[in-house]
């Protein structure tokens, strides 16, 4: 069954040696990466790693067939909660981050009661409305959310003393490594969840919800579970973001940002776990490096929109389908 879930999977990918070597290369590249970047590109790399967690967690929700428009607000819930815990209540930052993620999961659990009475388009609109309500509450209530200007001076991750070495997480490179570790572990957990019995049930609910119910699966319970898990990791990504940039405000988590997550997921494809990652990485490189270098600053949304339209019209299966094709071509080489 898992083989059918992750489409393709040619002979090369299944050989454990090749796969291990691939992961080793990837890890080495990711560790070496920041040393080849300019300062502003290092910052982009930090945001990119955080966004990878955001979009991969989003994909877990889409496994059950539901597309939310509130995921970025849930990310914001994690950021706001972590900021409030650490700033107002004096909780140590790492614990506050975890508490922020748990808060995001708890909010998602409460929202699941009204939202999962809906499906499909209604869920899309409902999640959007619920997210907007949360965002407007941040905007309206100066205490404790800081109003339209949001919260500032959020404590950063404290320095880590390892014998003679002190790691200062104010440095983008250090923070990049911290995020890389947190995000790698999170993505691995999300991957294991998808491959577990629970993940298979998510797939079953997506493709055959009535059949799944008829064999005794509570679709409501599993949809809620997917939503809560996805929200936990979205909240974690929000907390990572908040303690890096030191500020959160309602506009940072508006529907415009949500559109980007949707674009990453759709352009990358959501059939595999690496699809959305491909989407966010490729589009961030195009957006931040290529278009910025070319100097089209004002026109960037236009290109972004055009890429989105072109990818839906001409590559409906996403970038990940190219990977599958390339792998098949590689497996058939020399035939």
């Amino acid at each position: 069954m898992p083989e059918r879930v992750t489409e393709g999977g040619g002979a090369a990918a299944r050989r454990p040696g090749t796969r291990l070597a691939g992961f080793g290369l990837l890890a080495a590249a990711l560790v070496a990466l920041p040393h080849f970047l300019s300062f502003s590109q290092k910052e982009i790399a930090v945001f990119l790693v955080i966004n990878v967690l955001l979009v991969v967690s989003y994909r877990l929700l889409t496994l059950t067939g539901e597309w939310s428009l509130g995921h970025v607000v849930i990310m914001g819930v994690g950021g706001y909660a972590s900021a409030i815990f650490s700033k107002a209540l004096g909780v140590p930052v790492p614990l506050a981050m975890l508490a922020g993620a748990i808060t995001a999961a708890a909010v998602a659990f409460v929202l699941a009661f009204p939202l999962f009475r809906m499906k499909g388009f209604y869920f899309l609109i409902g999640s959007f409305a619920a997210g907007e309500v949360i965002r407007l509450l941040w905007k309206r209530f100066r205490i404790p959310f800081g109003g339209p200007k949001g919260l500032k001076l959020i404590p950063s991750v404290p320095d880590l003393e390892l014998g003679p070495i002190t790691i200062d997480f104010f440095e983008p490179v250090s923070y990049y490594y911290l995020c890389l570790i947190v995000v790698s572990i999170s993505v691995f957990i999300l991957y294991r969840i998808e491959r577990s019995r629970i993940g298979l049930t998510f797939h079953a609910i997506h493709w055959q919800d009535h059949l799944a119910e008829s064999v005794g699966v509570s679709t409501w319970r599993y949809r809620t579970l997917a939503f809560v898990i996805a929200s936990f990791f979205a909240g974690l990504s929000g907390a990572l973001l908040a303690h890096y940039i030191g500020t959160v405000n309602p506009n940072r988590f508006d529907v415009g940002e949500m559109v980007f997550v949707l674009i990453w997921a759709i352009v990358g494809g959501t059939a595999t776990i690496y699809g959305p990652v491909l989407g966010v990485v490729v589009l961030t490189i195009i957006n931040e490096v290529v278009l910025r270098q070319l100097g089209f600053d004002q026109m960037r949304p236009l290109f972004y929109g055009a890429i989105l339209i072109a990818s839906i019209l001409f590559l409906p299966q996403g970038l990940e389908s190219l990977v599958g094709k390339a792998r098949d071509a590689w497996a058939r080489r020399g035939e």
Binding site: I266, Q298, P301, L302, G305, L308, I309, I312
Partner: peptide, 23 residues
């Protein structure tokens, strides 16, 4: 035949219209 696709391309088109207005 792809209702979600129609929604997504309209988001892409929205970005284009906004940028054209800005330009």
């Amino acid at each position: 035949d792809n209702p979600l696709g129609g929604l997504i391309v309209s988001i892409g088109f929205l970005l284009i219209l906004q940028t054209l207005a800005v330009l």
